[in-house]
Design a protein around this nucleic acid. Structure first.
Lengths: 140, 140
DNA sequence: CGAAACCCCGACTATTATACTCCGAAATGC
DNA sequence: GCATTTCGGAGTATAATAGTCGGGGTTTCG
């Protein structure tokens, strides 16, 4: 029941990009150094986020990464779904047909409800908010 | 972000016990057969639940398992904590001192809030409720 | 007493998921 | 053409999960 490092790193990458001045870029390496993340791993994660459209990547000299979407509408839910796939506490909510108990299992609804709550909560949190909170926390 | 099989099996074991008529017992093997769970694994899980006090185990002929607590006050939270440890989405909420970002990291609060919601939700769900729901679902 | 039906315990193994690493290739800008 | 940067995929290492095994102990019953 824990977030993977992949997700942790990916979120930190997105947060770094969100804190960048509008229109500017950084390289994967810079973020890796700043956040103490193995660069080869982070670059793989960056690619994954690029494929999901959350990040735009430019190869070549002067290239780098920038946010692929407006940080005011980019949510934690988007990030986690791109990095870890759908929010699913139990296998049975994703693949109900694979569980012989699904017809009458009372846990099914429990998980469903919790997942819905998580989705709801995560979708309220934007990277713009996070970036501002972090900026304030560092400044203050 | 998924519940382990261990937790899944353990919950099913507790649910089986909760559906038993007051004061009666079953063996680990019966539950394993009914729920299609490898018996050696389930017996290990049963021990764990016994050590946590959620289950009482009696060796010997006519022995077996019974619930260690009143199903009306035994919650899903108790079960998951006994089976998987504390609810912690991110490492940093459990061990904030290990994270150099903890002082200013805006995600910390996000995770804390979500964890609190999960704890709250899970602690509302008792095995008595679940057992009744399943009984109804099978009967109906 | 002895057998059968139970659980206890720890060590061991297998499998899978995670967390990386590596390297050649392609794009870009000077 | 060279430095910088991402791309893509294959490969490896480590750790967590899932499960097995064998010996030992209790309890009940005949």
């Amino acid at each position: 029941m824990q977030l993977s490092r992949r997700a942790d790193y990916g979120i930190r990458l997105l947060l770094e990009l969100s804190m960048l001045p509008e229109g500017s870029r950084t390289s994967t390496e810079e973020i890796a150094n700043k956040q103490r993340i193995p660069i080869t791993f982070l670059s793989k994660i960056a690619r994954q986020l690029a494929q999901a459209g959350l990040v735009r990547a430019y190869p070549g000299l002067g290239g780098g990464l920038e946010l692929g979407r407006d940080p005011r509408s980019l949510t934690m839910l988007d990030a986690i779904q791109a990095l870890e796939g759908p929010i699913a506490i139990a296998r049975c909510t994703l693949h109900p047909h694979e569980c012989p108990r699904s017809a009458f299992c009372p846990m099914h609804q429990v998980w469903k409800k919790m997942e819905a709550q998580m989705v709801d909560e995560l979708s309220r949190i934007t990277f713009d908010q996070l970036a501002q909170a972090e900026t304030r926390a560092i400044a203050g």
